[in-house]
Amino acid sequence: MAILSVRDLRAYYRTEAYGISRTVHAVDGVSFDLHPDEIYGVAGESSCGKSTLIKVISGNVKPPLKAYSGSVEYDNGLQKVDMLTISPEEMRRNIRWKEISYVMQGSMSVLNPVRKIIKTFEDIVESHRGIQDKKVFREQVEAHINRLGLPTDVLNAYPHQLSGGMRQRVAIALATMFQPRLIIADEPTTALDVVVQRGVLQMLKEIQAESKNTVLLVTHDMAVHANVADRVMIMYAGRIVEEAPTKTIFKSPLHPYTKHLISSLPMIGVRTTKTSLRGSPPNLANPPSGCRFHPRCPLAMEVCRTEIPEMVDVESRHRVACHLVKGGAL
């Protein structure tokens, strides 16, 4: 049973100025399921639409972004809601933070610069549950952040007084306050140095192991996925190109793009010749026809230019969209 199912989602940015209109096909026909108690990784190079996908799932669709078709269904076992049609107030009251929380990309700037950290905790708790006794509330928050290994002092600090790693931990502490079933993390370790990255990932992993919730982890860093994710989905130019359990993705990738991502990973002791792709990621305002990867694919064929490769299941939990891969191995 899936906790979140996304079906054929299309979300575009449409802008218009002085008669010139532009549509960025940032998410273009994406389907996948999230299951309880797993860490699901989303990978793909910068500006392939990962953050846009997250925006739609977390109910942050604002102009110029608009979801044009598809569905995003959240099911917590008690109720099913469509995240695309639910009213904003209902979403705020019942879903946000209680069911789905979010660790945003660039958590450096997600904390209000003029408010102490404790105030952000206060605002969130106040808005969802109300605060009867400030002292009790403060003790609860202190207990919560201590459990996550954060010192009590951070509560009285302003964001700019904390280090990047500290702020990211605060963001995770905020996201886990109500023990939500789904935690979405968008590039939670980008811009942190390696040692700090490891600490932050460890923290996320421990939380997940303890509360058995689902974590949707978005990052362009394949090494992070290798260490943390249970399953990985690879996006390219607004579409899913491959999805499989982490082991399978790294051991036997099938899509040429996935292969490229993995071969460019630095591995200890192994000296790989880094294959660089020709060209640059496509402009999503005017994406290539057929397989969107074809202008850069070393194995591209004639058919790739005209026909969109269909998603095929090669194993029960492994699917790929590439004309080279035939389905039916089931």
Binding site: R92, W97, Y102, S109, V110, P113, D123, I124, E126, S127
Partner: peptide, 20 residues
């Protein structure tokens, strides 16, 4: 970011408007 984030956390609109 901090406003979009505040909205995502479900903080009440009035509070976001004034304090954020």
């Amino acid at each position: 970011d901090y406003v979009v984030y505040a909205e995502t956390t479900g903080i009440k609109e009035r509070k976001i408007l004034t304090q954020y």
